[in-house]
């Protein structure tokens, strides 16, 4: 699975109709795909992603329900997502990765791929799967187990 972390563009024009669908415009979206921003002939493109206009998540549950399943569509693919709150005491940092097409299939290389940490902090993340309900088996969701485990260890006097 690959992640692309995108910061939503803030809306330039207020559109009252957009509120017809419940969305969270501030969310950072973790997508189950990789969007290549490098042109075929080399050279980096800076692509702006008008998230608020093209990506319209909706849920059938109450929007403040933390277990609610969300739905959306990207390039025609059906996505199912959950909202993740960054646990108390932790911060989410946005990292800008290096998009190196020559090495993109080599797992090891991705460890050196962080170009910079933007310093932007996020409290909430939308975690998306392609047509599959996110479960505790998903890598990111299971990784968050550590938060609870570490707290249990640290608070144990023994």
């Amino acid at each position: 699975m690959r992640f692309v972390i995108k910061r939503p563009e803030h809306s330039q024009t207020e559109d009252s109709d957009a509120s017809a669908v419940a969305t969270d415009q501030q969310a950072v979206h973790l997508l189950p795909c990789k969007i290549h921003t490098r042109k075929l002939g080399g050279g980096r493109q800076t692509l702006k992603a008008p998230v608020d206009r093209y990506f319209c998540p909706y849920t059938k549950a109450a929007t403040d329900d933390e277990t609610a399943l969300w739905h959306s569509s990207l390039r025609g693919k059906p996505l199912t997502g959950v909202k993740l709150s960054i646990p108390d005491g932790y911060v989410g940092l946005l990292c800008v990765g290096e998009d190196d097409d020559n090495h993109r299939n080599v797992v090891e290389d991705s460890t050196s791929a962080v170009e910079s940490i933007t310093g932007e902090v996020t409290q909430e993340v939308m975690y998306w799967n392609w047509d599959r309900i996110p479960t505790r088996e998903d890598p990111l969701l299971s990784a968050l187990d550590w938060v609870r485990v570490s707290e249990a260890i640290m608070t144990n006097d023994n």
Binding site: M1, R2, C33, H36, E108, T111, S112, W130, P139
Partner: peptide
């Protein structure tokens, strides 16, 4: 438009899987 790759092949998924924490690895190991 920009090329988009989906993690669609089940078999490949484990092989290619990149844990988010791998971005913070040491010396690629």
């Amino acid at each position: 438009a920009a090329q988009v790759d989906w993690s669609d092949e089940e078999e490949d998924e484990d092989e290619k899987s990149v844990p988010i924490t791998s971005f913070f690895g040491q010396n690629n190991k």
